[in-house]
Design a protein around this nucleic acid. Structure first.
Lengths: 266, 266
DNA sequence: CGCAAGTTGTTTGTTTTCGTAAATGTTCGA
DNA sequence: TCGAACATTTACGAAAACAAACAACTTGCG
């Protein structure tokens, strides 16, 4: 019973993307398809993955299917945004991460940060960051929303009001042309607003799909935030507005990280 | 006796990169492969790293693994206890489930109950019961304990004080001959005591292994509870005490519901 | 100086892993 | 239902990684 250096990384990729393919992993590690198949067989026997034709998926028993699909959607894009956001987060601060697949991606990029105090109302974020033993995790209370593992309601806002964060990373369902952050659930909006009030620095993470959607409840304006991270350029007028509001706009590009993984770190 | 200077640095590199290779370390330190192998063997024996072919990786969730093993331990017994407990829980009530593998088993047996309001400080319980769409789930806030997904601390007790439960199901680490419930973590004890204060009916779930163990912090006495569910008969004196305290003792038996086990013909 | 304990480099034979290739299974469209 | 394309399993030899034993070296001490 011997492990392989690849196994942990395969699991990480699987958790990140929800699935892995033999072909892609072989290209990623620079080994043959057979070798990857052997790895997947081992991991499946250990119950860490479920083997499927052409690859493997996370073992069933993890939550909501619709949610998993949504998370897999634009996974590369979200990761790129999350990486840019995480790069601007220093070690040792207090940080809030709220509901949303993009904020979860940020959590994944924070796995090697140290001495963070992370407060979240997202059970998935808590689960992800539990792997980072160098940071403390606090979960707000609240009513569990099955769709995405979010905790909302007065318990959540009440907990948040007991903190003051160095930084808050929030997501939203839509971002309209006026620079207003919008969401579907009024309870979640209350939580987001409480977060904004309790934070020294607030940043938005939102991929380009948010720009072409709309939602009924207003959270705040980009004018109220310190920065936003996205994978697309903002419409010209909104970009100008942000400049006027002193809201930093960080544009990230998707990089294909499927290349060899053993580039020597400096 | 000088400890090897390389060991701390190897661990640091491992934490930074998640993994180390024999080859890279040998080049880094300017020593032979054998020497690095000896270092890695030492570190693996000390439990600081997991040895793999070609290098070593961070021990993946040492605490988590211990937990998984603990959960698998006596799974049949715990399910039997949980089934008896769940059978006495009517639909439509408010219910608290706290930390513990046995309470998680109770959650699994509640998957077909209806109209429950379940409050828990156990992330695993919340994840399990999320599958039951006929009940509402509230998670208390608190500091995340990686070992078992428990939420503890003042946030947890504060949340609990905002409720009044029809029933609370609690576990404990040990149950001594005097009928005292004991635990290891004083924070968790505070939570359990808060739960007991806020509940109309309180029950304990504990398998027989709890009777032969001990722990330092006292939660309460069986005299303060309404019922206990176990898989073993209590010692004679304690059983008599429970009768005097009007504490109902429910003894359950393991039934093999796994169907016939595999029998190869011929 | 000599000795003992500890560490490292070298050599040896064994175990594990990996790539190749052929045989067997699976998927999917006609 | 059939067949082609793709995926998987199986087997085997080569290469890499391994553990164990021993020699050379350093260090600490009387």
């Amino acid at each position: 019973m011997s492990q392989t250096l690849r196994h942990p990384e395969i699991l990480e990729i699987a958790r990140r993307d929800g699935k892995v393919t033999v072909e892609r992993l072989a290209a990623h590690f620079g080994v043959t398809l057979q070798t990857i198949r052997r790895d997947l067989t081992d991991l499946a026997e250990a119950g860490r993955l479920d083997r499927v034709h052409g690859g493997a998926v996370l073992p069933s028993g993890t939550s909501n299917i619709g949610y998993e699909e949504r998370r897999a959607l634009n996974a590369d894009t979200k990761r790129a945004i999350a990486r840019a956001c995480a790069a601007d987060i220093p070690d040792g601060i207090s940080l809030f991460l709220n509901i949303g697949t993009t904020t979860e991606a940020v959590a994944r990029e924070l796995l090697h940060h140290r001495d963070l105090l992370v407060v979240t109302n997202n059970m998935n974020v808590a689960n992800i960051l539990a792997a980072n033993t160098d940071c403390e995790i606090v979960v707000t209370g609240g009513q569990l929303r099955r769709a995405d593992g979010g905790l909302v309601g007065p318990l959540a806002t009440g907990t948040i009001r007991q903190f003051k964060f160095d930084c808050a990373v929030i997501g939203c369902s839509a971002l309209d042309a006026d620079g207003d952050l919008l969401d579907f659930d009024i309870q979640e909006v209350s939580v987001s607003q409480a977060i904004l009030r309790q934070s020294r620095r607030t940043v938005l993470v939102a991929d380009h799909t948010k720009l072409s959607r709309t939602a009924p409840v207003r959270i705040a304006s980009l004018a109220d935030l310190d920065a936003m991270y996205s994978d697309a350029d903002l419409p010209e007028k909104l970009a100008a507005d942000c400049e006027g509001w002193a809201t930093e706009v960080v544009r990230s590009w998707v990089v294909d990280d499927a290349g060899p993984s053993w580039q020597e770190p400096g």
